[in-house]
Design a protein around this nucleic acid. Sequence first.
DNA 1: GCTTGACCTGAAGCA
DNA 2: ACGGCCAGGTCAAGG
Length: 272
Amino acid sequence: MPSLAAPGFDLDLTLRSGQFFRFRPDGDGFLLVDSGRVLRLRPQGDRIEYRGGTAAHVRRLLGLDADHGAALAALRRDPLLAAVLPRYAGMRIMTQDPWVCLVSFVCSSMSNMKRIQGNVEGIARAFGPALEDGIHDFPGPAALPAGALAPIRLGWRERFVAGLFARVDPARLHALAARPFEEARAALMELPGVGPKVAECVMAFSLGFGEACPVDVWIRRVGRRLWFRNRRVPDRRIADRFRATFGRHAALAQQIWFQAVRDGVPVGQAPR
DNA sequence: GCTTGACCTGAAGCA
DNA sequence: ACGGCCAGGTCAAGG
């Protein structure tokens, strides 16, 4: 089985951090679906063994192309993040297919990991071409018959997802990766069900905008406590503060804080 | 601009 | 078992 170098990379942490939903445990590794490929990954020390795709695909998907040493150095410049960093230094920002990422995060509103995973898998199973026995690629945008999404149980997100399937041009979506930050963000927010949070998720986790910083309820709490004496401030100010502090590593800083607070790590104290 | 409530469903966690 | 000052938000309306 081929393998690639991944020093200090934590596959389990990265996959369970809520960036990407098309994975499941598979033996002593994971099975992932992205961009028409079924990838089987297994950590082996400082390497990742892989089957089903190219090394370039795996490296890109897992965020292993970035200069992680430089990123960690930037993160350590903030003492409070430095305090929790040892536990989360293996986190990477993934780069998945933007269309799948977009639909996934529109499904994520007021939902949870397990349910989002079920929704995304359900859409793939219902409308996507089979890749292997029981494993389907995610379907591209296309006009779906009225009511076709009903069995997926998306609830009030259904009309948003239907709108995305009707309106999105994947080529234009990909092309946003080359646009300036504000322009890409505004273009995404034109889409149904896409507000600031979902827009920055798509930018961070699929379009390569390292300065993107999705502000959800958890990051809102962290940001308020770290920088605004626990006062209410607009989400935009929190995201801007992440960008001012961490620059193009804001997305990684955000993702580490997100995971840390969800793990119950106290904010602004040394880990015990 | 900022605040508020509605929106489908499923199931964590606690009687 | 049962069901809520829930849940990783967005949208449209209102003061």
